[in-house]
Nucleic acid binder design. Structure first.
Lengths: 217, 217
DNA sequence: TCCTATTAACTAACTGGTTAATTATAACTG
DNA sequence: CAGTTATAATTAACCAGTTAGTTAATAGGA
């Protein structure tokens, strides 16, 4: 069937998608309603028709993105074999999703750097769910005696922050190498190497017991 | 001596300081020239007189901030006792500086999440210097056989990213606890605990040799 | 006097948001 | 099923407020 001349769902979805891309690329303030409308060949008024105002659109975009990643991570992790396997699933799924949807980490980073200035309640919820998920994995690992000396909030930012930064700075790092060849910005590292490395290192960090002088039995 | 009625240096410095604060708090686009001018009791035209345009001011602000932190880290680290001590100095100095100047991490995060979209050359240089510093510490440690399996770029983002996020989200995390008491967002952690924890964990992560099965001797 | 610092007033461009009119479509009706 | 109607989707034109940047005039100090 040919696509209908008017299709509310398609229009709404198109607005969300293009807005997400533009918000991520240029930030909230620098992105104009007209720009978004032009990008998806839709009249500007449609944005206000469907999302009331710019803040409403932003809120919709963020919830959409965060819920999507949360679902993905939940999905991959429902196995519950062991805290270690869950941790690995968390890291790798999060990394892979970010790599495939690079606007997401940019949006999250920007929002966090505002300290949630215009962070809608709904979005805050979604962010919190992700943290709660990792937190429970870490605490389970600690109670099983696998992980030691865990501060979930710090570990969470260590994982999520590192991945977000590596994904968002990908073009920047490639550019840096072009300007200065003897600078190793890991610009060739693909996302699998990166998430593998992060998992390996976080694992080490959590598994070793005595922080000052690691001794073996 | 009484402060002169006209003092170019003081005016310039005042503009930089207040602009830094406002850019960090509200972002580049959301900060207006008039707002900055009002904040430092200076005529708006002075901003354009001294910094040509908004982008010029932003560039000046960023260089100023980044050079300051770089100098601070260099200063504390000139001891060169050992890679481990240098690493500790790097982490703790960076963390302390961020805590004392919380606009800096917000600015850096925002800029990185743009992937340096309007990142001026000058500022890029300053960011690079910081990375080069840590990189040389890590490589020295590796060549001395203290650190193992180091990818400087990832470790750099792990350290700097974690600290930046923890500093910028401080108010957000406090707020989260107020809304949901059984959520541990590390809102009471002070910067010394945090940097100590990060150093301890990064140390573990780098010192243990075999990633798969850590063995001793 | 001459140069630098400073100001108030101005403008041209842009932005979020509105509105009244228009079109497509589905539902109803006889 | 043709024709009517109600309503949801879409548009173009517009508005009021804001913003970066300019300019011409002025005041202070060496």
């Amino acid at each position: 069937m040919a696509k209908p001349t008017r299709d509310a769902e398609a229009t709404k979805a198109s607005i969300i998608q293009n807005a997400m891309m533009l918000f991520a690329k240029n930030g909230y303030e620098a992105t104009t309603a007209e720009e978004i409308a032009k990008e998806c060949n839709v009249n500007k008024a449609m944005i206000f028709y469907y999302y009331k105002n710019k803040a409403g659109l932003y809120s919709a975009v963020m919830s959409h993105a965060l819920d999507a990643i949360h679902e993905e991570v939940i999905e991959s992790e429902k196995c519950c074999v062991s805290p270690l396997a869950d941790l690995e699933a968390f890291i790798k799924t999060y990394a892979k999703y970010c790599d495939e949807h690079p606007y997401l980490p940019a949006l999250i980073l920007r929002e966090l750097s505002d300290s949630g200035a215009h962070l809608p309640e709904m979005m805050f919820e979604s962010l919190r769910k992700l943290f709660t998920l990792l937190s429970s994995i870490l605490k389970e690992g600690e109670s099983q005696g696998i992980f030691h000396n865990v501060i979930p909030m710090i570990i969470h930012f260590m994982i999520v922050g590192t991945i977000n930064l590596l994904v968002t700075t990908k073009p920047l790092r490639a550019n840096a190498v072009a300007l200065n060849a003897d600078l190793d910005t890991c610009s060739d590292c693909d996302i699998d190497e990166i998430s593998d490395y992060i998992f390996t290192k976080i694992k080490l960090m959590l598994e070793v017991k005595n922080e000052k002088n690691p001794t073996c039995a």
